[in-house]
Amino acid sequence: MSDRLLADWRQHALTLESEVNKVVVGQSNPIRLITTAIFARGHVLLEGDVGVGKTTLLRAFTRGIGGGYQRIEGTIDLMPNDLVYHTYLGEDGKPHVSAGPLLMSGENLSVFFFNEINRARPQVHSLLLRVMAERTLSAFNKEHAFPHMIVFADRNQVEKEETFEIPSAARDRFMMEIPIVVPNDDAIMQGLMFDTKFHNVDALVDTLKADVLQFDQLNSFSGTIQNSVEASPTLQKYALNLWKATRQPLDYGVKVSNVDMNRLVLAGASPRGMSMMLRAARVNAWLNERTAVTPEDIHAVFHETVAHRLVFSPVYEMRRTEIAREMLTSIINAVAAP
């Protein structure tokens, strides 16, 4: 029964991927990673330039998953309560309070998109920290739960004016940080310019098959995946070595060009981070019709689940994307399995 369930859901997942790939072209790898995060029940931080299709991508996924979709723009004057409620004077001349984006969909909230998260103040990050970790919120003397919610946030790494660096504790709540870049393929780039179907995002997203997945069943099915896909002792040892290499890269002979490795890493991957990496790797194995995790499954999610958790010396923070990528590639090359 479990095998059949796994196969059926896999078919749904691949259908969702295929549908989203029709709407957002040239982003097959990010789409696979977001699918993985959805089934691993992890929050996603999207990193990329303006206008590369991040919002369209999320809206497409939301339509495929079903459930509520809410969005908020990060600004320097955004306060935590702006996420929870807003007040206004009604037609009756009296003050009214209505639910903010977090509370508007109630328990059915499935995707919460925080646009330009690094423009919001640390107070907002702090609120989000709790919501992401516990999927609950205390407001109006009541505990609100969002059991099916996944947070997608995006940030622009290039622009630094009027931005706040997301603290490492908040970054660690995200399962993945996925780079979204402009496709390299000339045909795709040309299509994005001249194909009129990309001009109207609302109409484009509406072409996508709705409710391919049932958002309220994802939590329980995610548990099924995690319990079904195995990790052998050899794989566990390999993952452990990867983790240790993020903490003590010199012990594994890891080097990054023009970087003093003795000073680079202040903190390696966290236990939560490695646990999330294995969750994502299990989902990747399931998507590839395997019953056990292999090193290749870990590699498929390694950069995206670990890079944003590493804490570097401040002197190297400006180059963190480039250094993290080189360091993690070097770790994969240095650690053997078996």
């Binding site: 195995e230 052998s232 002792p233 050899t234 794989l235 395997r290 019953t291 056990a292 995790v293 292999t294 090193p295 399995a337 078996p338």
Partner: peptide
């Protein structure tokens, strides 16, 4: 073969 030997406990 290596995948079967090292990473699939039930294979």
């Amino acid at each position: 073969l290596s995948r079967q030997v090292f990473f699939e406990p039930n294979a």
